[in-house]
Design a protein around this nucleic acid. Structure first.
Lengths: 140, 140
DNA sequence: TCAATATTGATAATAAATCCCAAGTATTTT
DNA sequence: AAAATACTTGGGATTTATTATCAATATTGA
């Protein structure tokens, strides 16, 4: 049960919050939009208002239970925060998302920011391309 | 006159396109939203419909005359494409944007993509932080 | 358990961007 | 250069993702 995760985040354990966190914990690799979360709950026979889905995802993001990304310019997707920061490679054709982290890139960023007189709050690195996955719709 | 730039991009030389390209060429360092472009043209006494501004910016982006960015998740901004790729550091407080490029980071990205079986189309790196600019609203 | 407080969910509102289409402008043809 | 054709514009309606409102409901601490 994930009530403890909610408590730790300073959130009371309500049904919608339980369901949404559960769904994300069950799919730790997934990057789901609010609509997708809504639909999946419906499929499970659980009804949570779409407004609540947005609200709860926002709360989870604020308490660092999950991370928000915007791979395309229009829709936010959310994934479970598993502690380890990482960046993303996204296939423009099949949508596959691969996570990676590169300490050298992280270090260079810190250097650059310092050089420019900035203190880093966060960063965001997406690499877009075509993957060679056999399931990929893209045929080279 | 920038009619030639338009021709080269395969776009006929209409008044709105001239005005918008002019504005961006006059401010090569600026990152303007569609609304801002619209407002600045109004200030110049030129009226271009907002729908046209969006349309033309889209066309310019497609023909690589300009680049589109989304520093916050909600609004796109555009800047003149001056050929040289670069990344951005954005101050969360005062909105200042500094451009940089780091060959080491570029190289690491290529390595990582190859390792993961991707062919890179593009990438996007934003560093968000606080700047130490005296004009910055952020007081450390 | 019960009252105080927080949360939910249906719906309305918002904001950015796109679509539609009649009227206007640019380009090509003659 | 005028006529014919093709493309572009602009105003408003529309879409899409998300947020705000608020009465009804659920949660929690005493």
């Amino acid at each position: 049960m994930n009530d403890n995760d909610l408590k730790r985040a300073g959130l009371s354990a309500t049904q919608p919050r339980r369901l949404i966190l559960d769904l994300l914990q069950q799919n730790p690799e997934a990057h789901l939009s609010a609509e997708e979360v809504y639909r999946r709950l419906l499929e499970q026979g659980e009804t949570v208002g779409i407004a609540t889905v947005y609200r709860v995802l926002g709360q989870f993001e604020k308490s660092n239970l999950i991370n928000r990304h915007q791979f395309d310019g229009t829709t936010s997707v959310y994934e479970l925060n598993q502690g380890k920061h990482h960046d993303h490679i996204i296939c423009n054709e099949c949508g596959r998302v691969v996570e990676f982290i590169d300490e050298e890139i992280e270090q260079r960023q810190r250097n650059i920011a310092e050089q420019q007189g900035f203190h880093i709050d966060s960063h965001l690195l997406y690499i877009f391309g075509h993957c060679t996955n056999p399931n990929c719709r893209y045929k080279p």
